[in-house]
Design a protein around this nucleic acid. Structure first.
Length: 219
DNA sequence: TGCCAGGCCGGGT
DNA sequence: ACCCGGCATGGC
């Protein structure tokens, strides 16, 4: 593939033109972003909203409140987001880390050097690359491109990456061919999700309406 | 109505 | 090093 930078820019402009600015992440605070990032693992965002609403209703969107909450109580509150027993543990793992390492202060956590922090977060059980990168990009404002299934699917469908491409390779593709701008990365990922939800579904893609259709013919 | 959603882990080859 | 099952609710 040649002129990757031009292709990635073209995709971005088409998506932005079609969907408009997404202004992600949908949350009221950096901490809520972290919680949402874990809850949305392989899960419809609508279900995550219900779980977040439950936590918010009980004023529990706070590291110390969640830290002292019983695991079984937490799992019941986040039930609508699915995988609730698993995710309750994962939330606890993250919160324990945040409190023990940074006294529950996200600003302190984000004052760490990016690579150091990313590796620490990745060592928490239940936090993988997408979750960690989402936290770093949207809550921490680090210039790190987030890759998810929609990103892969859209690139793959348009033959921009091979089938067996890895997370790191896709991330590098974006980061090596776009300026390292936080706002751009935030918006671009959000637009890919918007496109994925609308057109690039797993079994029933609606390619005729997709703004990326005929990408190559126009380049 | 059945398929799938903004993943990740662990155990088996 | 892969590959695959498990985790689970609610939307469309």
């Amino acid at each position: 593939m040649k002129n990757k930078a031009k292709i990635l820019k073209e995709i971005y402009e088409r998506l932005l033109n079609h969907f408009g600015p997404q202004n992600w992440w949908p949350a009221q605070s950096p901490f809520e972003i972290c919680i949402g990032a874990i809850l949305t693992q392989n899960t419809n965002w609508k279900n995550v909203e219900k779980a977040l609403k439950n936590l918010n209703k009980h004023s529990l969107l706070d590291p110390f409140k969640l830290y002292s909450l019983e695991l079984k109580d937490l799992s019941q509150l986040i039930k609508p987001s699915g995988f609730y027993n698993l995710k309750a543990k994962r939330l606890k793992n993250f919160i324990k880390f945040l409190i023990e390492e940074y006294n529950g202060n996200l600003e302190t956590m984000f004052s760490e050097k990016l690579e150091v922090l990313r590796n620490k977060l990745l060592s928490i059980k239940g936090l993988g690359k997408e979750t960690v990168d989402s936290i770093l990009l949207y809550a921490g404002n680090f210039p790190l491109f987030v890759v998810d299934t929609y990103t892969y699917r859209i690139l793959s469908r348009h033959q921009l990456v091979p089938e067996e491409v890895s997370y790191d390779e896709i991330q590098a593709l974006f980061m090596e061919n776009l300026p390292a701008e936080v706002k751009l990365y935030q918006e671009y990922h959000a637009l890919l999700v918007a496109c994925g939800k609308s057109f690039c579904k797993n079994q029933k893609p609606n390619c005729s309406q997709c703004p990326l259709t005929f990408l190559f013919m126009d380049l």
